[in-house]
Write a protein that binds this DNA or RNA. Structure first.
Length: 376
DNA sequence: TCTGGGGTCCTTCCGCCA
DNA sequence: TCTGTGGCGGAAGGACCC
């Protein structure tokens, strides 16, 4: 009997780990990645480098990734840099370098593909891998029916390490949902293999928020209903969940709590939309800062047009996104008769969208988006 | 001193049309 | 002609994820 084996591979503190390859003197130290283009390391006369720290950081921005020593100080991704500076002033601050991360992303994915070619991309630092038909995956090792697949997963970990110098964590289970949870059970540098029999002991004790698809809102609502763990969720009947969360999401919650997920790996996908947005250094007023806002919009439009053309797409629906000083966000869309990719046409459509927004409040963010993409 | 940027998918509402 | 119904595309917002 052939068993389905799906792996989820997650690179450990990916951006930070890539930076540590460049700056090995920072290994073991608290390091956070984030903020603007300032804070580049400065080479010193004696050959060492001087790094910025969080101490005295001012301005907007959040942490993108933190090393494990930094996490031990209480900082984590998504945290505002000002707040992080108060908790860990001594932590080193490095700017993001997406070019470099994309390079290492391609390397680790190519390395995995050498061992197991059926891969679903989930962003820059994680993938799902179908191990079902990888040679050896179905073999038992002694009495251990999972011995073969464990060996395959370990081989993938070794290959990634050899190709990049980076560690990853892998969860191997019968489906994507469980694999995603399992990959976090022994992080960093871990390997966890789970079968359906392990669900009560390994999955049910976990907080519901550990399930991919239960975010802050659903987590809060479950909490208010007295449900904190996956096991407590599993103890509620389907009908009860559907009463509280709707037919579709209720069904999904029920299945998820029992570790059931038959979603296939998506090995090829086309982009649906592309966008550019920016948060201002300070909030801007539509009238008083009109010139500045126009300049920013033109710049975003130009970047979006460049992105579209470089990747060979045009978009039929052009939209804008505004975030006001009270963090309320509004969007306006306009669908055109024909797809466009040039800056002038995108700018015209964005301008028409803007006339449909009440601009009384000050703005903190402006964005432009192209959707309904077609290949040129 | 709150809260980045780039995405996907889902729901709801509305107008239009058969 | 009136009313209802249902499909569909577009628009807006929200939840979630990396």
């Amino acid at each position: 009997m052939r068993r389905r084996w799906i792996a989820h591979l997650d690179m450990d503190a990916f951006y930070a780990s890539v930076e540590l390859l460049r700056y090995p003197e920072l290994v073991g130290q608290p390091v956070v990645i984030g903020g603007g283009r300032r804070h580049q390391p400065v080479p010193q006369a004696d050959g060492t480098r001087r790094f910025s720290t969080l101490a005295g950081y001012t301005g907007r921005g959040v942490i993108t990734t933190a090393t494990y020593p930094a996490r031990d100080l209480g900082v984590h991704s998504g945290m505002g840099l000002m707040k992080a500076a108060a908790l860990a002033p001594q932590a080193v601050l490095l700017p993001v370098d997406f070019e470099q991360y994309r390079l290492y992303s391609r390397r680790f994915k190519a390395a995995v593909a050498e061992v197991a070619p059926v891969i679903e991309n989930r962003g820059i630092d994680e993938i799902y891998i179908d191990l079902t038909d990888v040679p050896g995956a179905q073999d038992a090792v002694g009495h251990d029916g999972t011995g073969g697949v464990r060996a395959v997963a370990q081989e993938i970990r070794n290959t990634v390490k050899a190709a990049t110098g980076l560690t990853c964590s892998i969860g191997v289970t019968p489906n994507k949902l469980l694999a995603k949870v399992a990959s976090e059970l022994d992080k960093p540098d871990g390997l966890t293999v789970l079968t359906a029999q392990d669900i009560p002991s390994r999955i049910w004790p976990l907080q519901v928020r550990r399930i991919n698809g239960i975010g802050p809102k659903a987590g809060d609502r479950l909490h208010k209903l007295g449900i904190r763990t996956v096991g407590q969720l599993a103890a509620h009947p389907l009908a009860w969940l559907q009463e509280h969360f709707g037919k579709s999401y209720g069904r999904w919650l029920h299945n998820a709590s029992h570790g059931q997920d038959d979603s296939p790996l998506v090995t090829h996908s086309e982009p649906v939309s592309m966008s550019r947005e920016t948060t201002f250094e300070r909030d801007l007023h539509a009238v008083r800062d009109r010139a500045a806002l126009t300049g920013i919009l033109d710049e975003l439009v130009a970047e979006l047009a460049t992105d579209l053309q470089r990747k060979g797409y045009a978009g039929r629906t052009i939209g804008i996104k505004l975030r006001f000083d009270d963090f309320k966000t509004v969007t306006r869309d306009l669908t055109l008769p024909e797809p466009v990719s040039d800056a002038a046409a995108i700018r015209r459509a964005a301008g028409r969208c803007l006339t449909r927004v009440d601009l009384a409040r000050r703005l903190r963010l402006l964005g432009v988006r192209a959707a309904g993409l077609v290949r040129l």
